[in-house]
Design a protein around this nucleic acid. Structure first.
Lengths: 227, 227
DNA sequence: CTATTTCTTTGACTTATGTCAAAGCGCTTT
DNA sequence: AAAGCGCTTTGACATAAGTCAAAGAAATAG
């Protein structure tokens, strides 16, 4: 219980709440464990509640008629997903599958709804969180429709390296997954990485990428073109 | 005032509130009028509040480094926009320009925030509304990354005709604008419309489109390919 | 430690869509 | 009605990125 409260306090969705609020949340949260590759829910399933990642990673994605998948989000520890269905009352809008061994905290819709009704602060936090997500989607839409793949890739690499504060990036997803995040296919990604390497922008070492020319990448991220 | 309350009641964001709640909202809302083509705010501007369309239309869009624009939303009467910045505390994430003569209701951030703190029901409505918008974005992302332009166009035409309940669709945006909504350029849109016409799927009459073969369009919307 | 499967890279080819330029069409304005 | 303007269409062309197929590398299992 104390454990759960500490976890809750570290999550953006629930930042800055009171002890009583955390206790109330901890009471309604249910722990669920998954192996790597297990399905949490499918598109169209009833949204009976939402989830929060305690450890591991969850992939949220859509699948087209031809079976291609576009990853919408990769959620790690501290992040939550599935809230949308709690408020729209409709089914889940996408598929969710774990991509690592994962532990989640599940908040049932009814119990959570009751909680939020009594607690504007909680509602405000959630509004902020959903707003951030909208912003993320707006960015993704811009990238997908305005930029070419090299631009998206450059942007993504710079983002990762800024997060790690290092020039050496450890890809913690497979390259196939990365391709899907970028809205393309593994072959194209592979070719572009090779080309960036040939141009001295990056250096490839398996699942690690070393940034050699940050300026060059920034240029590509801006106008989306690779010589 | 009575006028404003009637308008508020018809807006999804504020559906099902009490009379007192509407009055409180009406008190903080400020009316603002715009000519066609005027700018409401720019990307990066401080989010000092959010807007609601009383009449007219507002285009929310992003502009790339090369100057291409992708329309994220077209908001008409009853719809609201700019809430995100109220909750994230950051600047507006996109540009907003009126595409018709337009009247808006502006809700200043501070006043609205105070209101919502005291009123969980209001917060819940907004949560639902933002959730719907997230869903819309997820759809848009899927379309942009998984489908080709003919598929997106077919889907859009079917959507419009289902809204009007008719086989004859009146495009209320220019074809250039439509191209941007679909994430493409006018030339490509023009060619695809011509091709659909040649295949007997639709018939073109200026800004009106007549759907001749709904089944055919549905097929294209599904797998995104035009013979 | 080898075997098997899965992921990644490379090559040859096709195609959808963007670019650039010019012509056509439908408006409004005078 | 003529002139001028913006929007739309058409044509010729360039190219990014997808498809298909096969070879190489890496990870996992036996």
């Amino acid at each position: 219980m104390v454990d759960v409260i500490r976890q809750l306090a570290g999550m953006p969705l629930f930042a800055g709440l009171s002890k009583a609020q955390y206790e109330a949340l901890a009471r309604i949260g249910i722990r669920r464990s998954f192996q790597k590759g297990e399905r949490v829910f499918s598109e169209g399933d009833d949204g009976i509640g939402f989830y929060m990642v305690t450890e591991g990673r969850v992939k949220i994605f859509r699948v087209s008629a031809e079976g291609k998948e576009q990853i919408l989000h990769l959620f790690g520890p501290g992040e939550s997903f599935g809230e949308v269905s709690v408020f729209t009352g409709r089914g889940f809008p996408a598929d969710a599958v774990t991509s690592l061994q994962t532990t989640l905290l599940f908040f049932p819709r009814m119990a959570f709804s009751a909680l939020i009704q009594k607690d504007p602060a909680l509602a405000l936090n959630m509004l902020g969180q959903l707003s951030m997500r909208l912003r993320h989607f707006a960015d993704l839409i811009e990238d997908l429709s305005l930029k070419e793949v090299p631009g998206r890739l450059a942007k993504y690499l710079l983002f990762l390296s800024s997060k790690e504060g290092d020039r050496e990036i450890a890809l913690d997803v497979s390259k196939g997954q990365l391709a899907s995040v970028l809205g393309t296919i593994p072959e194209t990604l592979s070719r572009i990485l090779a080309k960036m390497h040939r141009q001295g922008l990056i250096r490839l070492r398996g699942a690690r990428i070393l940034i050699l020319d940050r300026r060059g990448l920034e240029g590509i991220a801006l106008d989306g073109k690779l010589g």
